[in-house]
């Protein structure tokens, strides 16, 4: 998908960040293991599967209530799934589910490209944006979830209350440009502006090229990454192979981009478990929605907190003792910990 570009500006292409492909040339999307892995999953037929909107329109509420009206497809199954961090269940038990926050998922909701996966609610066949939206809504089931198709290129509008933007895609162009040379569409310009002003928590998938954030891969760079470096309320999200614990520390997923040597990236880089062996879904595309959900959950507790404060809370409470050979250049601030983000620094 080509994004808008202005004269004398490099042409940008957007890519989903759900998996790593070594054969990027000539390919518009980064497909790969995510789609392959799920082939063994028990689906009847990919061709027979309904898309999420159609399924929702037919039956809602576990299939027991069927209506004819079109229902937004965001699924809000409120159950702790095996792929989630145990922190999520603890937060839910305490009543935090993201109420009052709005997560806007900027992603693909209109293309014909779909793939299979299973977030613990049965195998589904969905577009990339439908997957990331579903994941965020499962982490923060009481949050308002909005979908913004990134092909529209129009500015992202913010809602009342806390805003979280989920970006599980990158904007790639030939390496070597300065970010200031990029002619951003209104969509990305608004996102970058929100991150700089601290108007919204911006959760950005780090990328799946096993390079440092903003690094060169195949002669190209993710300029959206580069544009968000140093922005107050931006968080780059890398993927761990599993959720880490002190007894079983996790390591960076083989495909995930890492923080690198730039202190500005390190200080805004988090990692979370992306347990693709359980969902059939791999990639930092599925790391970012977890942080988006966490931000919404924190916002439901600290209702007066600004996006920048919530960003800092997530960054400052990340754990390093759940990671294999913690190093800031790999893991940035560490593995996000929702329970610690909700806890006090001190109490007396």
């Amino acid at each position: 998908m080509k994004k808008s570009s202005r004269s004398r500006s490099p042409r940008l292409s957007s890519y989903f960040l759900f998996d790593r492909s070594k054969n990027m040339s000539g390919s518009r999307w980064k497909f790969g293991l995510a789609a392959l892995a799920i082939l063994s999953a028990p689906i009847a037929s990919a061709q027979e599967a309904l898309d999420a909107d159609e399924m929702a329109a037919l039956c809602h509420g576990g299939g027991s209530i069927c209506v004819s009206a079109k229902i937004p497809a965001a699924r809000t199954t409120q159950a702790v799934q095996s792929w989630m961090s145990p922190d999520v269940g603890a937060a839910w038990a305490a009543g935090y589910k993201g109420k009052g926050a709005t997560i806007t998922v900027v992603d693909d909701f209109s293309s014909s490209s779909r793939f299979s996966g299973n977030f613990g609610v049965g195998v589904q066949y969905q577009r990339h944006g439908e997957w990331t939206r579903e994941e965020a809504s499962m982490i923060a089931p009481s949050a308002t979830i909005k979908s913004k198709d990134f092909s529209t290129s129009s500015a992202v509008r913010l809602a009342r209350g806390l805003n979280v933007l989920n970006l599980s895609y990158g904007m790639y162009a030939t390496q070597g440009y300065n970010v200031s040379q990029i002619g951003w569409s209104a969509e990305e310009a608004s996102i970058i502006s929100y991150a700089g002003k601290g108007s919204a928590v911006v959760s950005k998938a780090a990328g799946n090229d096993s390079v440092a954030v903003g690094g060169v891969t195949g002669g190209r760079q993710d300029y959206l990454d580069l544009a968000l470096i140093g922005k107050a309320s931006a968080i780059f999200v890398g993927a761990l192979a599993t959720n880490g614990t002190t007894s079983t520390p996790a390591q960076l997923a083989w495909y995930s981009n890492y923080a690198g040597s730039d202190p500005l990236v390190q200080s805004h880089f988090l990692v979370v478990g992306v347990e693709g062996d359980k969902t059939g879904l791999y990639g930092t595309s599925f790391a970012a929605p977890i942080i988006s959900g966490y931000a919404a959950v924190i916002g439901s507790k600290f209702t007066k907190a600004t996006p920048t404060q919530i960003t800092n809370d997530l960054l400052n409470t990340a754990r390093t003792d759940t990671l294999v050979n913690y190093n800031a250049s790999v893991y940035g601030k560490g593995e996000a910990s929702l329970s610690r983000a909700l806890a006090p620094v001190s109490i007396r």
Binding site: T308, Q309, I310, N312, D313, P344, I347
Partner: peptide, 9 residues
Amino acid sequence: CVANYGDLG
């Protein structure tokens, strides 16, 4: 108690 939530107040 008085709880310090860091940036959150």
